[in-house]
Write a protein that binds this DNA or RNA. Sequence first.
DNA 1: AACCCGTGGTA
DNA 2: TTACCAAGGGT
Length: 349
Amino acid sequence: MNFSNQLIYWYLNNRRDLPWRNTTNPYYIWLSEIILQQTRVDQGMNYYFKFVENFPTVNDLAAAPEEEVLKLWQGLGYYSRARNLHFSAKYIVNQLNGVFPSNYSEIIKLKGVGDYTASAISSICFNEPMAVVDGNVYRVLARYFGINTPINTSKGIKEFKKLAQQLLNKEDPATNNQAIMEFGARMCKPQNPDCNSCPLNSSCSALAKNNIKDLPVKEGKLKVRNRYFNYLVIETDENTTKIVKRKKGIWLNLYEFPLIETLKPINENELIEHETFSNLFGLNNVSVKLFNNKIKPHKLSHQHIYAKFWIIKIANSLNYKHSWEDISKYPVPILINNFLNEYKSDYFF
DNA sequence: AACCCGTGGTA
DNA sequence: TTACCAAGGGT
């Protein structure tokens, strides 16, 4: 048995029964693939159920306001996935008469769909012989064939795609693609792979050379940027506050409290003297109190955000019309959601 | 090519 | 605790 057929044989005896494995409806496969980008199955599962339930068809998704889509996506991260998903749903309904594209070259035109996702959908739903190359495939191929080309270079991307395509079982690309990914996720894991019970252990290069921990090779290291956020949590006499929509960068189109970002941590006096602060409150009589004395950084892939939540009490409620109950309807970053849960738990539970 | 975009699990 | 990184894609 060749490499791919051994993987398929293993897969047919070891596959998990996942909800998106019981359908070839391209809309559902698309949903699952977008949700699972850079996301573990355990983390994405409930989101898949939520999306299928709230948007049973691509028409339902297209008809929803973006805020509703982002709210359902809240907590999953990489929110451009949700924005692109929604954009592409509208494209399918308005430009393609609601018919999901049925081949690789049309599928990859969808926003948020790259080579991996187009290969996955076209093979699983339409039996098109396009090999998927995700993190699992890089790892399995690099180890088994002893390839040390860095996987995050254009050379590596081409090399692994070509090899995966050569290895692909063209009779059953759907099963082959899912087999190699499942194999990478559960047998040839990043740490502590189960080499003892691996069906390929007698011919694996990395096992023979004892360099499993060095493969796959990744180039460069991402640098983490520190940012200092000062959120202005307004409390008016009428029990209202204010949130605003983010217009750029991280958490685009999600909501947060009015923000003053600084290059270094600042204290209360520096906050009050800040230009943005005086522009907002002018000569109004406000009281300021820091909610979180202990600042725990909110860690993203390449940013550490040190957020202070300043409670601003003000009599005038003219410009601050959000009730605290309303805020739970808006999509917010986890950082904001965690604060809300601590600060106004009465309203949310 | 280099950088940006989240959150949570694991060792 | 830090570091890695997960069914990647856009610019």
